[in-house]
């Protein structure tokens, strides 16, 4: 088992280094592949942090432009997705700051909240169709009641399966803050699901 873990971690770090080399050279084929590979995960993360699908689409494109421009700063020592999410997150924060210069952004202040808008009736995914409508609506409604700051850590930990240390890098906060947000987020999710749709 430890052998397998070592094998996969070596494989991953080799891959990260090869991504770093490609980004350094601004390899267009690599970027195409990365966009395809991370499209769904990045978009999902952006929807969770912005709370809005249209805005998430804009940030999705901007994030990849930044990846192209700043690709040489990725050193390949960490997971590519953690670096990608950090770029996306900072774009969102910059936008929120420029929009409301006097206030803190929603990703640092849970009271400044955008409602989460996940539904897109015209474009159902296969999974969307498989899941029962009732369950889907219940989860959506519950997530809408959770502040973005908690939605973000929940998606990074339980959907993206990032380690707490990696999350601290993405969020630029200490480990203790990540943990406390995770516990509060988990509690908020549990309570929101228990209460059911509003």
């Amino acid at each position: 088992m430890p052998g397998a873990t070592l094998f996969f971690s070596t494989l991953m770090s080799d891959e990260a280094r090869s991504i770093a080399r490609g980004l350094e050279k601004r390899d267009p084929h690599l970027l195409d592949r990365l966009i395809e590979r991370y499209q769904y995960r990045l978009f999902r993360y952006l929807v969770y942090v912005t709370g809005n699908r249209e805005r998430a689409e804009d940030f999705f494109q901007e994030t990849w432009i930044r990846v192209l421009e700043r690709g040489h700063q990725y050193d390949g020592k960490s997971k590519f997705e953690a670096w990608l999410f950090a770029i996306a997150r900072h774009l969102v924060i910059d936008w929120q700051r420029s929009k409301k210069p006097q206030s803190l952004d929603t990703l640092t202040d849970p009271d400044q909240e955008h409602p989460l808008q996940l539904a897109n009736e015209d474009d159902p995914s296969p999974l969307h169709q498989v899941l029962s409508q009732e369950q889907e609506e219940n989860v959506q409604a519950s997530l809408e009641r959770i502040p973005a700051i908690y939605r973000e850590v929940l998606v990074l930990r339980f959907q993206e399966e990032l380690q707490i240390e990696e999350m601290a890098g993405v969020l630029s906060v200490p480990l203790s803050t990540v943990k406390s947000r995770l516990y509060r987020g988990l509690q908020a999710l549990r309570e929101a699901l228990r209460r059911g749709p509003a």
Binding site: P28, L31, D32, I35, E36, Q39, Y40, F43, R44, V47, R53, E57, F60, Q61, W64, I65, V67, L68, L118, N120, D123, P124, S125, L127, H128, L131, Q135, E136, N138, V139, Q140, S142, L143, L154, V155, F158, Q159, L189, L193
Partner: peptide, 22 residues
């Protein structure tokens, strides 16, 4: 529920992005 939550991916977004990046 959180893990199985589906967010539909907008059609054409990836190809539009690839075009802009190029």
């Amino acid at each position: 529920s959180l893990r199985t939550m589906a967010i539909p991916f907008p059609r054409g977004l990836a190809s539009r992005t690839q075009f802009r990046v190029r």
